[in-house]
Design a protein around this nucleic acid. Structure first.
Length: 436
DNA sequence: AATCCACAGGAAGATTAGGATA
DNA sequence: TATCCTAATCTTCCTGTGGATT
């Protein structure tokens, strides 16, 4: 990079000399589940009391858990699940807890396959169900047998596993259920108890979309929602406690300046009380300070952290935009720049469309209709890349007023990564002589 | 009060892409 | 491999509308 050829002696030696501020960074990541979840006692107790029947060999109700991102849903479920399994071992009741994130495993087949393979031990891994190839009902059948305590011998015969005592309970956690394609799996899983001889299954569904249940098959809705829990967002005070707890474990003593934690908490509380956001904010702030070889994390770093996180988010969104949307975005940027010369900072749909058409011509892409562009503009608005609000200019019609809401230079740089776009980032739109 | 601009945005149908299935 | 299905994308055609202007 760059033109300078100054030799760097012992690059990593130098970098290693930077005094780290972290003692254990993992603790500050969202994937970490602490042993103690502040301000979730009520939820933990509630969930616990819903699941205790498992230890008595009875079937717990299915539970549906709703709450915004970063409200501790997953952490609570994992925590309670862990406790449940430990207690189960103590008293000789086996409880299988199977966690599945439906954002990753999102089809009926793969969910069933995943659950079933939980019962396949490492030594006869060859028995596992392949990720493709079997008819779905056969996977379901295998799953049913496994859950019910059967095992498959090398000769493909099913027999009861003597190690599995009848009456064990399998709890299936489906995180982000709303991401699931189709609701057949839910129907099958909530109904599976009818097909079981010895054991029981209960399902916990987690979602951050409360409206999700509205679109479900009524039968699924009633069986999944036997019990439901709502996780309220954390307030600023609670976020502070969470941050203090984690910072104590993750950071070296005395690296945080007073007021840093309250600031992170306040900023995250403003964004619907997302604990993940608060942790990211603090972690990135500390990383930035560390990189600066500064041994104190101050408010300034929190502000920088906030900018960095937002910028990373925007870059990621822009990078993964479909080409047509990128063209619309570039048209908006170029249009806005050209308008700025004339002292106008906003654009109308029509203006964006005009520039867009020119861009299409010079890149050789298809020109979509204005109706379609209208929708693409709404999408970009929802992604927070720019704001588009409907205004009326009276005699001169009704349109949307569009204004960029993210840094133009860095956005352009991300757009340049696209081969097709690269050639036209410096494109100069024809001056519009519109009435103002 | 009536007009009319420059679109918004709904409905429905066509086209396309990806993925499963025979 | 052909073909079928589905969801996403895009088009066509459309009605609706806030408020400056007449």
């Amino acid at each position: 990079m760059g033109g300078s050829r100054v030799a760097v002696n012992d690059l990593f030696g130098q970098l290693l000399q930077v005094e780290p501020l972290f003692s254990n960074k993992e603790v500050m990541r969202a994937s970490y589940t602490p042993d103690d979840l502040p301000h979730r006692d009520a939820e933990i107790r509630g969930l616990g009391s819903l699941l205790v029947p498992a230890l008595r060999g009875e079937t717990p109700s299915n539970v549906f858990i709703y709450g915004k991102t970063g409200t501790g849903k997953t952490a609570c479920v994992k925590y309670v699940g862990k406790e449940l399994s430990t207690k189960g071992q103590e008293i000789g009741k086996r409880v299988n807890l199977i966690y599945i994130n439906c954002e990753i495993v999102d089809t009926q087949y793969r969910v069933l396959q995943n659950i079933a393979n939980h019962f396949v031990s490492a030594e006869n891994w060859a028995q596992r169900i392949p990720f493709t190839g079997w008819p779905t009902d056969e996977v379901y059948e295998a799953l049913r047998r496994y859950v019910d305590g059967f095992k498959k011998a090398d000769d493909q015969q099913w027999s009861r596993d003597p190690a599995r005592i009848a009456g064990e309970v399998t709890i299936i956690v489906l995180d982000e259920v709303d991401k699931l394609k189709g609701d057949e799996v839910l129907y099958n899983l909530t109904r599976i108890n009818g097909d079981l001889q010895y054991n029981k299954v209960s399902v916990i569904g987690i979602s951050n979309d409360l409206k999700f249940t509205e679109f479900l098959d009524p039968r699924v809705k009633s069986s999944l929602g036997e019990e439901s829990m709502i996780f309220a967002p954390y307030d600023a005070k609670q976020l502070e406690d969470i941050l203090t707890q984690r910072a104590g474990m993750a950071l070296k003593e005395g690296v945080l300046q007073d007021g840093v934690i309250p600031l992170c908490a306040a900023l995250a509380a403003r964004e619907h009380g997302d604990a993940r956001r608060a942790l990211d904010l603090l972690r990135v702030a500390a990383e930035l300070a560390e990189r600066d070889r500064n041994n104190k994390v101050s408010d300034t770093y929190v502000r920088m952290s906030q900018n960095k996180i937002e910028l990373d988010r925007i870059s990621e969104v822009v990078r993964t935009l479909p080409t047509q949307s990128k063209l619309v975005l570039l048209a908006t940027i170029l249009g806005e720049e050209s308008n700025k010369d004339q002292g106008v900072h906003t654009l109308t749909t029509g203006e964006v469309f005009d520039v867009y058409k020119e861009l299409c011509k010079s890149t050789g892409s298809d020109i979509l209709t204005q109706r379609r562009i209208t929708d693409l503009i709404s999408e970009l608005d929802m992604l927070g890349i720019f704001t588009a609000r409907v205004i009326s200019k009276g005699r001169y019609g009704r349109t949307r007023e569009i204004q960029m809401s993210c840094p133009i230079d860095s956005t352009k740089r991300v757009l340049e990564e696209d081969e097709l776009i690269r050639g036209v980032v410096t494109f100069k739109p024809k001056k519009q002589n519109r009435l103002v």
